[in-house]
Simulated scan of single mutants.
Amino acid sequence: MPLLFLNEKSWGTACDPARAERAMADFVDAVRAAAAAGGSGTALVSEVDVKALEIAEGYPVNKWIGASPRNRVLWQRLRGLQGRSPVRSVFPAEDAADHLEYRHDGEVILGLGAAHFMDGIAVSLPVARQWQADRVPLERSELVEDDDGTLEMRHDTVDVRHLSAEPHLDGHLDWIRETRRQGVTTGSRIWDDQADLYPHLTFLPRVEGQLRGLNPHWVVPVRRVLEGLEEAVAAWDPATMAEPEWRTKVTPEGETRKRVCRFTDLDGETRTFDLHARFTPGAGRIHLRLVPKERTIRLAHIGGKIRPDL
């Protein structure tokens, strides 16, 4: 759920309207792709409302919106993403970055600097060549206090994550996924974000209650096992492999226990989910079955070891 920080220096530069149109279309596609990868909570952060900006000199966003029905659709898609302004509104405290200054090519640059400070991603309108990259170097000046209490300004160079076109997102996807996983601290979040976090896994409805009531000690272990299952199924080709190359230990139940692993599937049929992965502390189990036609595995149980009814 990263924050996307608008690079104000990439707007209002000189270019012809046709180039501005292409740049705006690429920008909308890139932002929407980042938001899709980032999931709920992803926001576009800018110092002023995007509608108040100029795409190019003399070509404000309002004029672009009215230029064609396609532009209106693109604008609606962009506005579908949560927007926040000004930039300081997302800082942990309004003055949190007052000891820092970021420059690019000698100019103070707010959006890119905020993206680095807040560990987010900067997004630019791809008009100038300098913004057509997945990382942008910045000069950082930081006011620091020495051991003796004196203040001095230190200077270094840092790279900020950046995108201005959809292909730039490829270099940031692993980081985005890890950021989202680290943000999952409850079983309810696992359930609510399952489609985004684990697109190759499907869950029976009965699992919702198990996840929402998940012991806090089990949240991280369960999350890690699900991540391993997701990675395995994402690389699985059912046409050439009977089952995925598991990234976590997955074994079948013995014949005498298969009867306790039968559950009502999504289509109403009762099936055996005897394959299971383990997690600790305790005897944690995730029961599943392979669904090769859908290139997925279906999960029927997340919790303690299933005990037979007495």
Rank of each mutant, 00 (worst) to 15 (best):
I65N: 01
I65W: 04
G66K: 06
G66S: 14
G66M: 07
A67G: 12
S68M: 10
P69T: 10
R70H: 15
R70T: 13
V73M: 08
V73F: 02
L74S: 01
Q76M: 10
R79I: 11
S85Y: 08
R88V: 12
S89V: 13
F91C: 11
F91N: 11
P92E: 11
E94I: 14
E94M: 11
D95K: 15
D95H: 15
D98W: 05
H99K: 11
L100K: 11
E101W: 03
Y102C: 14
D105W: 07
E107T: 09
I109V: 15
A114M: 10
A114L: 06
A114S: 14
A115P: 01
A115L: 05
A115H: 00
H116Q: 02
H116G: 03
F117P: 00
F117A: 09
F117I: 11
G120W: 01
I121H: 02
A122K: 01
A122I: 01
A122D: 00
A122Y: 00
A122R: 00
V123L: 00
P126E: 02
P126F: 02
A128F: 05
Q130F: 02
Q130I: 04
A133Q: 12
R135L: 08
V136T: 04
V136D: 00
E142L: 13
E145L: 14
E145W: 09
E145H: 10
M153I: 15
M153N: 03
R154G: 02
H155E: 11
T157I: 11
T157E: 08
D159I: 10
V160G: 01
H162R: 03
